[in-house]
Design a protein around this nucleic acid. Structure first.
Length: 199
DNA sequence: AGTGCGATTGACT
DNA sequence: GTCAATCGCACTA
């Protein structure tokens, strides 16, 4: 296993859209009893300040309070009663905004991910926000934790700078649907979404 | 206290 | 391609 170092909070861009791009190519590390599971972030979406599609749009609530933490904290919530979503809080303390992690490329602990997901195809393990959360066994218990220090779930440096970055509208929302706030690594097979958005 | 719906997924036609 | 599953939360009253 590689000797990862956590991302330094001081290096994280404060701006949400900038952070969404910065996180591409970084490593997401999950510490489980069976072993360490890691993946490279290949797709993100920004939910920026004043964004009507963002969960923080109507102010702080019990659910979304983690979005208002200093940048680099986890905001985890349950979508459709089915799938957990992992976000990284952004901006300054008290400001509600964040970045949704939409897909990762499996790296270490692939056998554990298969166990957690119960699917055969490698490509289906972590392609999509709910899928990657299931593969890494991420749930509401991890909401609010600091992703800039080693623990149950944290962010580490990537091994290499990502290849070309693509940009598109966000997936699965209706409000503010036309904003180009989705970012992904071009030609990476673990990016979710329709072909038309992955050019 | 009741209602409507969503930053999705998986199964099915 | 379509559609149901499933539940916590935000909103209305």
């Amino acid at each position: 296993m590689a000797a990862y170092a956590p991302l330094a909070r001081a290096k994280l861009p404060v701006d949400t859209a900038s952070l969404a791009q910065y996180l591409l190519g970084k490593t997401l590390v999950r510490d489980l009893p069976e072993g360490v599971v890691t993946g490279i972030i290949v797709e993100t979406e920004a939910y920026v300040i004043g964004d009507a599609a963002g969960h923080a749009f109507r102010g702080m609530t019990k659910r979304n309070r983690s979005l208002f933490l200093e940048r680099g904290h986890a905001y985890v919530y349950l979508a459709y009663g089915i799938s957990y979503m992992l976000n990284v809080s952004s901006e300054t303390p008290g400001v509600g905004a964040g970045v949704l992690i939409r897909a990762i490329e499996p790296c270490e602990g692939i056998a554990i991910m298969h166990q957690n997901r119960g699917v055969e195809r490698l490509r289906d393990l972590t392609r999509g926000p709910g899928r990657l959360a299931a593969a890494l066994r991420i749930d509401a218990a991890l909401d609010g934790i600091d992703l800039c220090q080693k623990g149950l779930l944290w962010l580490a440096r990537g091994d290499a700078e990502p290849d070309e970055i693509g940009q598109s509208i966000r997936i699965g929302i209706t409000r503010e649907a036309d904003r180009l706030l989705r970012f992904y690594i071009r030609n990476n097979p673990f990016v979710s979404g329709p072909k038309s958005l992955n050019k």
